[in-house]
């Protein structure tokens, strides 16, 4: 089992619905977020191109954040989902410094928090909150080992990229281009 997510940059309009939905679903405190939107515009008027990406933890196959965690709070869970166990986290920030994607933040309660791929929903056979809400249906989630999962199917027929592959983290968030 290997959970992954694909983001269709050709459809994403950067509305941030995924950000709010995550915030309400997971009770992320106001002022923090587990996912965020990046908009890149290139060229000069009127020869312009724009890419919009909804970003979050990449649930890397080879995660520096898990490696550097001194307590084992950061760990791999079902299907390679990278999680933080609140009451094992000492809040040393090592994982935050180690993440090339800046996907983690120190929760005001002290522990470090990040995207969980909504494991609590996934375990019930539901999609993550952000995937479920996206008005353009540009987020695809599922098990890469299952060729019929939404994410497998879309990755089979579309060109895609990952972010900072050179960091060697084996990210599991794919951007359709």
């Amino acid at each position: 089992m290997r959970y992954a997510m694909a983001v269709d940059t050709k459809k994403c309009v950067g509305c941030s619905d995924c950000v709010v939905a995550c915030q309400t679903e997971n009770n992320v405190p106001i002022g923090y977020c587990r996912d965020w939107i990046v908009e890149v515009t290139d060229g000069t008027y009127p020869q312009l191109e724009m890419e919009i990406r909804s970003e979050r933890c990449n649930h890397c196959d080879n995660s520096p954040c898990v490696r550097c965690c001194p307590t084992g709070a950061s760990h791999y869970s079902d299907g390679g989902i990278v999680l933080v166990t609140k009451d094992m986290c000492i809040g040393c920030g090592a994982c935050i410094a180690s993440c090339p994607y800046d996907a983690r933040y120190p929760h005001p309660d002290g522990y470090v928090d990040k995207c969980t791929f909504c494991i609590h929903r996934v375990q019930k056979g539901q999609n993550p909150a952000c995937v479920e809400v996206c008005p353009t249906k540009c987020l695809y989630f599922g098990d890469l080992d299952d060729p019929n999962s939404d994410v497998s199917k879309v990755l089979q027929k579309r060109k895609f990229k990952t972010l900072i592959p050179e960091a060697g983290t084996k990210p599991q968030l794919y951007f359709l281009i």
């Binding site: 997971n26 869970s77 079902d78 999680l83 609140k86 969980t116 494991i119």
Partner: peptide, 17 residues
């Protein structure tokens, strides 16, 4: 969590309401 992960069962991570 490790043992759970190892035998692929549901992890014990505390989840939001």
């Amino acid at each position: 969590p490790l043992i759970n992960w190892a035998n692929g069962s549901i992890s014990t991570d505390r989840l939001p309401a």
